[in-house]
């Protein structure tokens, strides 16, 4: 399998607090990688560095053919103008913890926004594709609703459809079920499970150990800005070598 994403030595500091201490990660096409770890371990920051919502202090991210945010000329990284950065960012679909649906647009409006404005699709074309995606996430019947009329689980499913509409190479999920009431988590995980089965490349920051165990090809556990454990879920989750990972897992699994 060929590589889709390669993070090289990502470092990030907020003030004097070092959040990420030089992380490396390779993700192949079709692979599902789940990032676990206690809160404050830097999982979300790492994900946000991958699509350049946070600019790493050092290190860089390569997505199939290009370094995000930079152009390599004679060994020097030259910062890209914002337009070209955005063109790279749309290769990485992002699903946020708090959905971030456009409040002034309907469900359909949210999904066609990117395709029409950024990819330049005609409205009819964009709407047809959007309805397919909404159907896929089970939200086709709410196409004309506004986000404020939806439950958290419904909002998150629309957000997934919106990200998919850009036809990204990789989908990034930033704790997609953490803001949901417990009974709404299942419907979102179900959609994600479907995507994983369909071969979508996914990097998922999550607290759902069960989901990671079932769906992930690889699990990595972050603690204090470092990857302490990485491997197949059955190995990492059942038999972690690192003592701090063991403490973390025993706490979340109990």
């Amino acid at each position: 399998m060929s590589l889709a994403v390669k993070a090289v030595g990502i470092r990030k500091q907020f003030g004097t607090h070092e959040v990420l201490k030089g992380l490396d990660l390779d993700v192949s096409y079709g692979e599902v990688v789940c990032i676990l770890g206690p809160s404050g371990s830097g999982k979300s920051t790492f994900l946000r560095c991958i699509n350049h919502l946070e600019v790493p202090d050092a290190g860089y991210v390569w997505i199939d053919g290009a370094i995000v945010g930079y152009e390599l000329r004679t060994g020097v990284l030259h910062e890209l103008p914002v337009g070209r950065l955005r063109a790279q960012q749309r290769q990485l679909g992002m699903v946020f913890q708090h959905f971030n649906l456009f409040a002034h647009r309907t469900v359909l409006g949210n999904v066609i926004e990117g395709p029409m404005v950024v990819r330049g699709l005609r409205r009819a074309e964009a709407e047809a594709r959007a309805m397919e995606l909404l159907h896929q996430v089970g939200m086709a019947d709410r196409a004309s609703s506004y986000p404020s009329q939806l439950s958290g689980g419904q909002k998150q499913r629309v957000a997934i459809a919106r990200a998919l509409a850009m036809e990204p190479r990789v989908m990034l999920f930033d704790e997609p079920t953490s803001a949901l009431d417990p009974e709404l988590v299942g419907e979102v995980l179900e959609v994600m499970r479907g995507l994983a089965k369909g071969g979508t490349t996914m990097i998922v920051v999550t607290h759902e150990i069960g989901f990671a165990r079932e769906v992930a090809d690889r699990v990595l556990v972050m603690i204090d800005g470092e990857i302490r454990e990485m491997g197949k879920p059955e190995h990492v989750l059942s038999n972690p070598g690192d003592p701090r990972v063991r403490t973390f897992l025993s706490r979340v699994l109990s």
Partner: peptide, 9 residues
């Protein structure tokens, strides 16, 4: 941020 990740300028 959502607009950024969709690639909007």
């Amino acid at each position: 941020e959502a607009a950024n990740t969709l690639g909007m300028t």
